[in-house]
């Protein structure tokens, strides 16, 4: 099936703010942005250049629960004219990283099947967790494999910085 990641019904109005949060209530609703309640933020977006950023809810909107059953999807997308950042928001313990990367990978595949990812100069995938930052280890090989496969740079952290 064709999937429209540019579905306006799933997009918020562009934000130029320096800083805002990405939230997911984990109650079956879609992910959203927030500017005034940092306690609810799972990931923090830093946008010092005040680029116009559009947040698109992927899970529960671009892809509904009944769409592509069995295939993973991430929570959202942040896009500008030259950026496309895939974001998975987690609020759990345990082995969340592998699951988050799988969801991001699956969403990137969906995107590539339906749009031209090459239109964006900066392509990244963020696995974010509010409760537990990833314990650091060295991921050079994983990052290179991800980059070679999708031309998207993988980043496991809860701070999404636009440069």
């Amino acid at each position: 099936m064709s999937i429209n990641f540019l579905n306006r019904n799933c997009q918020e109005t562009p934000s130029h703010r320096d800083i805002f949060g990405l939230c997911d209530a984990q109650d079956g609703s879609r992910a959203y942005t927030n500017t005034d309640n940092p306690a609810t933020w799972i990931a923090t977006v830093k946008n010092n250049r005040n680029i116009a950023l559009i947040f698109t809810a992927v899970d529960k909107c671009v892809l509904q629960d009944h769409d592509e059953i069995g295939r993973g999807r991430c929570d959202g997308l942040l896009t500008s004219e030259e950026h496309i950042y895939f974001v998975e928001l987690k609020n759990e313990k345990g082995s969340w990283v592998t699951k988050a990367i799988d969801q991001l990978e699956s969403t990137i595949k969906f995107f590539i099947e339906n749009h031209s990812i090459e239109d964006f100069r900066h392509k990244k995938a963020f696995a974010c967790n509010k409760r537990h930052n990833k314990f650091q280890e060295i991921d050079n090989e994983l990052n290179l494999r991800f980059f070679r496969t999708y031309k998207v740079r993988l980043d496991v952290q809860a701070e999404i910085i636009f440069i």
């Binding site: 313990k93 314990f135 060295i138």
Partner: peptide
């Protein structure tokens, strides 16, 4: 992979093991 040493080396695995043990303490 393309000349880049695997992340799954003994030294990185030791860091990972420390992470898993720490997570076990939280559990």
């Amino acid at each position: 992979f393309e000349g880049i040493p695997s992340d799954k080396n003994y030294l990185n695995q030791s860091i990972r093991e420390g992470n898993i043990l720490f997570d076990s303490l939280l559990e």
